[in-house]
Design a protein around this nucleic acid. Structure first.
Length: 911
DNA sequence: ATGAATGAAAC
DNA sequence: GTTTCATTCAT
């Protein structure tokens, strides 16, 4: 396949020198791009450097974007892609399946099928996607307040320079350079790796997966900066409420922070993520109290920023840039400013410390919750750290790379975040605050700008870092509790001082990795996405355990790579990315050992990257062992849950529930067990993280291919017709068939509905939520008949037609005027329930299978028998209701019905 | 670069 | 109402 493509390309154009056959399908995300780049470049020593290099390259290319970037404070960056809508999410999630099923089918065909599916999809299912999309969008918007979807016309509002294609991506409306807008995005994507961590990244949220991935990356990448900032950070309970994604969003978007904190609280995880990522925040030294409202991560980020003059500078620069047209000039200035700021930093740090203490006390109050919260934060951070592994680009890998976006979230990596751990309970453990620092210079600011600066400043920075002796936090020599050890580790890392002792803990990971090692090294590596998805499918059966394993390795590998990034300890870095298999082991081993030797050697010198990396790796491990990851995962779940359940708007509840509980238990438990379970925990944690990411992204139910087939079969006429042929036949049949025919349709429709959703991997988590209200057919009113047509008239018309003709099948078109047309199927489908929940994968899987079985064979007949016209009518009515009610009250039912059909049948029977 | 789908946003 | 663009990837 690939080869063909390549060839194709050649033939097609002379121009392209090689161009990327694939283009950027996946690259769309800058992050991804970056990751890819990283991978390729990985060979290089440091992540940072790499980034810088990349940046340079960009700059070299002539893109001055960096400078131009400007701000993101408000402006979205050009790069950001508009968030995907529900349908797109659906497509993204299912396309692979479709393709698998119909390899021959090209994307268009697949798209058609997907559309059919979408049409058939239960309202609930659809709703999930819709909710997700909404959440995502909200997060995105939060991250990029100024973001405009599309300039429709050509002119961007401001951009004077029309040179650019009007269409392309105007939305980057920001005044940035006009040229930047269009070219940058794609150009970057294509050619350069740009790193976009900056604020925009969150923006890019285009892919949910990206977010998740980002988180992972962050974890991996985030380095524990040698220069430790002072601990600070206040955590507020409020944050807890946010879902991880939301938090992420917050982080990502710098701008958001100031906004209403309360609001944020409610926000979903996505938002948080966005905020964190974007958070360029000016660190204005807001009061600690104020900060409380913000997410801890965000606060941390701010602190970090404050502490580090560099970042400050950048932000300032950015601002300045905004004000000033000259970008480059400013950059230069920035350097100078930076120096000045450096001085300031110390002061700031001091203040922060004071604040920190205060916040700390406050936090103590919360105790458990707080603790959990913290854990969550940690997780988030971890996630952030997980950065892109680098990998060499290989032709073969191309595809994989695409997939790689999962691992990508580069931006997170760049940002530094310091997290302090507040002792949650005095009783349980009083840990000194541990501080994790994530460096992400760029993250705070815009990627591009940052890049440039970085390059230039890079040297400076390093010098600074080294030079600036961070105040060492007090380190704790003896690790009383696991947590302490972790904290200690963190501190040590921050200091640059690493105790070998801790390393001991790390080993478990290694073991894990080793286990994971498979044959495919190369392929596996970066592209988690595809691979993952595929693997998932493959491994689905395996169940949570398997998944965990598979995932964990990835995470680890990633983290390792990142950690190591600075210096590749051993050969590992060479191909960092191979995430899962090869890379992991090597990296891990490398980490551990090197750490020992190097780390302990360098007690103080933060300077050596290797040591840092190794330390980081150790730290990471420690965290994992502690269960931090687990908690993270839980967070993610929560976010998922929230999204799934309620709409983004509601969010609120997210935190509590099982996931929350789970976190706590997990965390605490891990502590106790530590070593014993540490490994497991780590595995779980990592696995969970991955899962969560995926989940979010995939939280949506997926139809199994089988189902898909059935649907195709059952619905064939519609689909096919839709695309190619006229639906006439169908219609005719209807007309002639009358009700009878309808029935048939109905049945057909149902079949598909039965479809089983594959739950993905599912994860071990308890069900994050199952929305479906099993039995509730309540149909308040049948009124809503029409669906809102969307899209252009054409589409509308087409759709309408289809609906009548084709879709009818689903819903059944009434021969006459068919007022009711669509209704029926929806309702039935709804029941299908996804199996999403999570229980144990095994059970789930099992049930799913069972369901399939049932649906496929035996039941059909029975069903048909059951259905009566009346029943159909009722269903239709119900469906309408559903449709109208988009906002389904979420029933939290934790457990969906295993048997989808059953309910339906029953209802029918009743009537 | 195009298209296939849908949806959301910007006109 | 219409246009753009988000994803994906074979042409």
């Amino acid at each position: 396949m690939k080869g063909s493509n390549k060839n194709k390309d050649h033939s097609t154009e002379g121009e392209g020198a090689g161009k990327r056959p694939k283009r950027k399908c996946l690259q769309w995300h800058p992050l991804l791009t970056k990751n890819l780049v990283d991978f390729s470049e990985e060979g290089e020593d440091e992540d940072e450097e790499e980034d810088i290099d990349k940046v340079q390259l960009l700059g070299a290319d002539g893109l001055e974007q960096d400078v131009g970037e400007t701000e993101d404070d408000e402006s979205p960056e050009q790069r950001a892609r508009r968030p995907m809508n529900a349908f797109l999410l659906f497509c993204k999630r299912h396309r692979s399946l479709v393709r698998q099923k119909h390899p021959r089918l090209d994307n268009r065909g697949a798209t058609k099928i997907l559309a059919d599916w979408w049409a058939v999809l239960d309202p609930e299912e659809k709703q999930k996607y819709t909710d997700m999309a909404k959440e995502y969008k909200d997060a995105f918007m939060k991250a990029n307040p100024g973001y405009k979807w599309c300039p429709t016309t050509n002119k961007p509002v401001k951009s004077p320079a029309p040179t650019v294609n009007p269409r392309k991506k105007l939305w980057a409306f920001p005044s940035d350079s006009s040229r930047d807008l269009p070219s940058p995005k794609k150009a970057k994507t294509e050619e350069m790796p740009q790193l976009n961590f900056g604020m925009a990244d969150p923006t890019q949220m285009g892919g949910l997966s990206m977010l998740l991935l980002a988180g992972e990356h962050a974890l991996g990448t985030s380095e524990i900066s040698s220069g430790a900032c002072r601990p600070d950070v206040s955590e507020s309970p409020e944050l807890r409420q946010k879902s991880p994604l939301f938090q992420f969003a917050e982080i990502s978007s710098s701008t958001s922070h100031p906004d209403a904190p309360s609001k944020q609280c409610q926000a979903s995880a996505l938002f948080q993520f966005a905020e964190i990522s974007s958070n360029t925040s000016q660190l204005s030294g807001a009061d600690p109290v104020k900060r409380c409202g913000k997410s801890a991560l965000f606060q941390l980020a701010e602190m970090c920023l404050a502490s580090e003059g560099v970042k400050m500078e950048e932000s300032n620069l950015i601002k300045a840039k905004e004000s000033d047209g000259g970008r480059i000039k400013e950059l230069e200035k920035g350097k100078e400013e930076r120096e000045i700021k450096m001085e300031k930093t110390d002061e700031a740090s001091l203040q922060k410390e004071a604040e920190f203490e205060k916040s700390f006390k406050e936090n103590v109050k919360d105790s458990k919750e707080l603790r959990n919260f913290e854990a969550l934060q940690m997780d988030d951070i971890m996630a952030i750290k997980m950065e892109d592994p680098k990998e060499t680009k290989k032709e073969e890998l191309d595809e994989d790379q695409k997939c790689g976006h999962f691992s990508d979230f580069s931006y997170s990596a760049s940002s530094k975040i310091i997290i302090s751990d507040v002792p949650s309970r005095k009783d349980h453990m009083c840990h000194p605050h541990g501080i994790m620092i994530i460096e992400d210079p760029t993250a705070l600011n815009k990627p591009e700008k940052l890049k440039k600066k970085k390059k230039k400043s890079k040297m400076d920075r390093h010098g600074n870092d080294k030079s600036t002796p961070k105040k060492t936090c007090k380190k704790r020599q003896s690790s009383e509790s696991d947590i302490e050890s972790v904290m200690y580790t963190i501190e040590a890392v921050a200091k640059g001082d690493w105790g070998i002792e801790k390393l001991g803990e790390a080993p478990r990971k290694k073991a894990r990795t080793s286990s994971s090692g498979k044959g495919n090294i190369l392929d596996a590596k970066p592209p988690k996405k595809k691979v993952k998805s595929r693997e998932k499918k493959m491994s689905k059966e395996k169940s949570s355990d398997t998944t965990k394993e598979s995932r964990s390795p990835d995470l680890i590998s990633v983290s390792a790579s990142k950690n190591i990034s600075g210096v590749v300890p051993e050969g590992a870095k060479a191909e960092p990315l191979t995430p899962t298999e090869v890379a992991l082991p090597s990296s891990l081993s490398g980490q551990a050992k090197p750490e020992d030797s190097e780390c302990h050697r360098k007690t103080e010198t933060c300077g050596s990257r290797k040591s840092e990396r190794s330390c980081k790796g150790a730290l990471y491990k420690t965290l994992v062992s502690e269960g931090m990851l687990t908690s993270l995962r839980a967070n993610v779940d929560r976010g998922k849950r929230s999204s799934g359940k309620g709409n983004s708007s509601d969010h609120e509840g997210c935190w509590n529930d099982e996931s929350w509980m789970f976190n706590q238990s997990g965390t605490s438990g891990s502590k106790k067990f530590k070593k014993t379970k540490l490994k497991e925990d780590s595995l779980l944690g990592s696995a969970k993280l991955d899962e969560e990411f995926e989940k979010k992204f995939n939280s949506l139910p997926q139809y199994t291919p089988v189902t898909f087939d059935r649907k195709c079969v059952s619905v064939p006429r519609k689909k096919k017709k839709t695309g190619n042929m006229s639906s006439e036949p169908t219609k005719t049949s209807k007309g002639s068939g009358d009700k009878w025919s309808n029935k048939q349709f109905f049945l057909d429709a149902i079949h598909p509905a039965e479809a089983i959703f594959t739950e993905d991997k599912n994860t071990t988590e308890p069900a994050y939520k199952v929305k479906n209200a099993p039995s509730i057919p309540n149909t308040p009113e049948p009124t809503a008949t029409q669906e809102p047509l969307v899209g252009s008239q054409k589409r509308k018309a087409r759709k309408t037609k289809i609906t009548h003709l084709v879709r009818t099948a689903d819903g059944r078109v009434s021969p006459a005027g068919g007022t009711l047309d669509d209704k029926p199927k929806g309702r039935l489908h709804r029941r299908l329930p996804k199996v999403t929940e999570t229980g144990c994968s095994e059970e789930r899987t099992h049930s799913a299978e069972a369901a399939e079985t049932r649906s496929s064979t035996p039941e059909m007949p029975a069903v048909s028998a059951f259905f009566s016209l009346a029943a159909l009518a009722e269903v239709a009515a119900m469906e309408n209701v559903h449709r109208s009610q988009r906002s389904t009250p979420l029933t939290h039912d934790g457990q969906p019905k295993e048997m989808p059909q059953a309910p339906v049948l029953i209802s029918c029977a009743d009537q």
